[in-house]
Amino acid sequence: KEYCRTLFAYEGTNEDELTFKEGEIIHLISKETGEAGWWRGELNGKEGVFPDNFAVQINEL
């Protein structure tokens, strides 16, 4: 499994977007979303897309 840590808080504006606080760990599902600048991940049981410049991939939890 791949993970990323959020660098900033983000408020999702669409139903398919994740909302998160700074410093949260998102399970990274895919970097290929069909839309440049967006990754797909899962946080707190919800799957959605989020801007990749708001997070950095990490090697271990």
Rank of each mutant, 00 (worst) to 15 (best):
T19R: 08
T33C: 10
T13Y: 09
I29N: 06
E22W: 00
W39A: 08
W39G: 04
L18P: 06
G12H: 01
K1Y: 03
E15V: 08
F54C: 15
N44I: 01
V49I: 14
E60F: 09
E60L: 08
L7N: 09
K21Q: 11
G34Q: 10
I29P: 05
D16T: 13
W39R: 04
E60M: 06
G34M: 06
E42H: 06
Y3P: 02
I26R: 01
E15K: 08
E22K: 15
C4A: 04
I58G: 08
S30A: 11
E24G: 01
E24S: 06
F20P: 00
R40I: 04
G23P: 00
K21V: 11
G37S: 02
T19W: 04
E60A: 13
G37H: 08
E60C: 11
T13L: 12
W38I: 07
G41L: 02
F54T: 12
L7Y: 02
I25V: 12
L61W: 11
L7M: 11
R5S: 05
A55I: 08
K46A: 11
E47T: 13
G23K: 03
D52Y: 12
E22I: 07
Q57T: 13
W38T: 07
R5T: 07
I29Q: 05
L18Y: 05
G41H: 02
I26S: 02
N14Y: 07
A9N: 14
E17D: 09
C4T: 02
K21D: 15
D16Y: 12
G45M: 03
K1W: 05
E22S: 11
E15N: 10
G41M: 00
L7F: 02
G23S: 06
E2Q: 13
E47G: 05
E11D: 11
T33L: 07
L61M: 14
T19A: 09
H27T: 15
E24H: 00
T19F: 04
R40M: 10
C4Q: 00
T13N: 12
K31W: 01
K21A: 13
G12Q: 05
R5W: 03
K31N: 04
G34W: 02
W39Q: 03
N53D: 12
T19C: 08
S30T: 14
F20D: 05
W38A: 05
G48E: 03
F50M: 01
E22N: 06
K21H: 11
W38K: 13
C4N: 00
G45A: 06
A55F: 05
D52R: 13
Y10Q: 06
V49Q: 08
G41Q: 03
T6D: 00
K46V: 13
E47Q: 14
K1C: 03
L43G: 02
F20Y: 02
R40G: 01
G34H: 09
F8A: 14
P51F: 03
K46I: 08
L7A: 08
E17A: 09
T33H: 10
E42A: 14
G48A: 03
G45P: 01
T19I: 03
F20L: 02
T33P: 09
V56S: 09
F54G: 08
L28R: 02
K21S: 13
E24K: 03
F50R: 04
H27N: 10
D52S: 15
Y10G: 05
G48V: 01
R40V: 05
D16F: 14
E47C: 12
V49H: 05
T33M: 06
G37E: 07
L61S: 15
G12D: 01
E22G: 09
E42D: 08
W39D: 00
Q57S: 10
G37F: 05
K1I: 09
W39V: 05
P51A: 06
E24R: 01
K1F: 07
D52Q: 13
K21M: 10
K21F: 06
L18Q: 01
I58K: 07
S30I: 02
Q57K: 10
T33V: 11
W38L: 08
H27K: 15
W39L: 05
L18M: 07
H27S: 12
E24N: 01
E22F: 00
N14L: 07
S30P: 02
D52P: 12
C4S: 01
C4I: 11
K46Y: 07
F50A: 05
W38N: 01
Q57H: 13
T33A: 10
Q57Y: 06
D52C: 14
A55Y: 00
T6G: 05
E35G: 11
E11S: 09
V49K: 14
E11Y: 10
G48N: 00
F20E: 00
F20M: 02
W38Q: 08
G37P: 01
T13G: 14
I26L: 09
F54Q: 07
W39M: 08
N53H: 13
E60P: 14
F50G: 00
W39P: 02
G37W: 00
V56A: 12
N59L: 05
K31T: 13
E15C: 11
E17F: 05
E60H: 15
R40D: 04
S30M: 05
K1R: 08
E15Q: 12
I26H: 05
E32M: 08
F54N: 03
A36N: 10
G45H: 07
G23M: 00
V56M: 12
T19S: 15
F54V: 14
V56I: 08
N44W: 04
E32L: 05
G41S: 02
E22Q: 12
Q57L: 13
I26C: 06
N59Q: 13
T13S: 13
G37N: 02
I26F: 01
F50H: 02
G23V: 00
T6V: 01
E47K: 09
E2M: 15
N59H: 12
G48H: 02
L61C: 15
L28S: 02
G37R: 03
I25H: 06
V56H: 08
D52I: 15
Q57V: 13
W39F: 05
L28D: 01
C4F: 14
G48D: 03
P51W: 05
Y10L: 02
F8G: 14
W39S: 10
E32R: 09
N44Q: 05
I58S: 09
G23Y: 00
G48Y: 00
D52L: 13
K31C: 04
E15T: 08
I26P: 01
E42V: 10
E22D: 04
V56Y: 07
L28E: 02
I58Q: 09
G48Q: 00
R5P: 00
F50C: 05
Y10R: 13
S30H: 03
E22V: 10
S30R: 06
G12M: 01
K21R: 12
T6P: 04
H27D: 07
T6L: 01
D52G: 15
